[in-house]
Simulated scan of single mutants.
Amino acid sequence: MMAQFEYSTLAHPQDIQQLEHILEQCFISALGGEEAYINMIGVENFRIIRRLEQVAGGLATLDMGQWWGGQRVPMTGIAVVGIAPEYRGSGAAIALMQHTLKELYDRGIAISALYPAVQSLYRKVGYEQGGSWCIWEIATQNIQVREQPLPLELVASINHEVFHELYQQQARQTHGYLDRHPAIWERIIQPNDKEIVYTYLIGTKDQPQGYIIFTQERTNNGEILFVKDWVLTTVAAAQTFWSFLASHRSQIQQVRWKSSAIDSLTLLLPEQTAKIQTTSRWLLRIIDVVKALELRGYPPGIQAELHLEIQDNLLTENNGKFILSVANGRGEVTKGGKGELQLDIRELAPLYTSLFTPYHLQIAGKLNGTETAILTATQIFAGASPWMADFF
């Protein structure tokens, strides 16, 4: 299938124009201007697929990192996968993804993540559910947190560098958080034509303990305050966050924010009045088994050895038996071993991210293993519910 198509970078002006038209049709201008979006991501970060000299589709690659077990793992996000309608069903999308994944492997990338329009396409090339993306909602009158232990300071001139250190403090402790690509920061802090972005540091300017970035919108269902981004590094910051949002109750009916499917922020609320308004799962692909397993962090109290047997029909370097030895929070991988836990590269993703336990993956028919291997994998891959605050 790959041989039917020509894979390349996006360079020629006519190719850029063709891809803009394809993305405009695929996403119904949801990107907010295809030319501006391509420029923001960088032309050099797009890949296209051709058939008979015509651009059949393309995608964007966002090189960044993702935090797993307190360690940053090199990750490439895949965005705006778009195929022209006349080429859908021709195998163009599969070929585009296969070429891209081979390129990422050659470049030394450990893992890749994306948000699927449909899961079936990406499962064919080795992606599987990796974590959650959720939007929570609460009526402002139900927050009922009044104590505000810290001051808030309005940030007039917004630059993401101001927030970067605070964000990284939270990211290191959050299973699945991104070490963000500059374009993701840009979309958080830069308003579109229809919104005003408000930004506050929580705490003093010299010693900030968090921040909140939000917009306000008037809808048919009332006024909504949407938190675009937040970081809270102390309990005082979390209490101030809720108190500040509650203070909007005379003008704002609902507050929405992004958080985990298991949201610890809601523990500060007096009642279970916050609800998940929107939820979906993003997908992960292990690109380089050895790098992915060695760069990830593990529970520091565990010393164990897991014998894996992995099948990868696309990236054959990942095929075979591996021994993962874990000690002092880090892992080391060697070839060989007994192959006591057998799984496809696709099923390694939700195990790697701790989205599902080995037991539940086994019950779902996603892996096979001895009782000892299942127990060992459960200890090694124990972790908080993985989630991402960013959609790309």
Rank of each mutant, 00 (worst) to 15 (best):
L166I: 13
N142Y: 05
N313M: 10
I28G: 02
R346W: 00
I363A: 09
H12G: 02
N45I: 03
L96H: 02
G108N: 09
G369Q: 03
L293R: 06
S243W: 06
A274T: 08
F391S: 04
F391D: 02
V289G: 06
P85E: 06
L314A: 11
P13W: 09
Q4P: 00
G108P: 08
R72N: 12
E161P: 00
A56C: 15
Q18T: 14
L324K: 01
I252D: 04
I212K: 00
G108W: 10
Q342K: 15
N192K: 11
Q342L: 11
S132H: 12
P350C: 11
D229K: 03
V326F: 10
V55T: 08
I323S: 05
T316K: 14
G320Y: 07
T372V: 08
L31V: 11
G331E: 04
Y115P: 00
L201S: 13
I83L: 06
A56S: 13
E44D: 14
M1L: 11
T215Y: 06
A30V: 04
R180G: 06
T273Q: 14
Q18V: 12
D344F: 01
Q303G: 00
G210T: 11
A373H: 07
I345P: 06
T61F: 03
Q207Y: 12
K335E: 13
L295T: 02
R256H: 06
E271D: 12
P149T: 09
E147S: 10
Y115E: 05
Q311S: 14
F381D: 03
I188S: 01
H181T: 09
D344Q: 13
L10G: 10
A349P: 03
I184S: 00
D179P: 05
R51C: 04
G320V: 09
G203K: 06
L62D: 00
A292E: 04
Q18E: 15
V80G: 01
G297N: 05
I287A: 01
L351F: 01
D344A: 07
Q254R: 13
L343K: 04
I202K: 09
W282R: 05
E128T: 07
L269H: 10
L23N: 13
W242I: 12
E44T: 09
Q190E: 12
E20R: 11
S264Y: 14
Y127Q: 02
A382K: 13
G77R: 01
S325T: 14
Q119H: 12
G383M: 08
P182I: 00
T376P: 04
P300I: 00
R123N: 03
G108H: 10
E6S: 10
N192F: 05
Q148F: 06
S250V: 09
I94K: 13
L225C: 14
D193Y: 13
W387D: 07
R146G: 05
E137A: 13
K102Y: 08
E305M: 11
A95N: 10
L324A: 09
L295S: 03
E6P: 01
L269M: 12
I212W: 03
T140E: 07
E165N: 12
G131M: 03
E53W: 05
W242V: 11
G337T: 11
I302P: 04
I83D: 01
P386E: 06
L375E: 14
Q342D: 05
E24V: 00
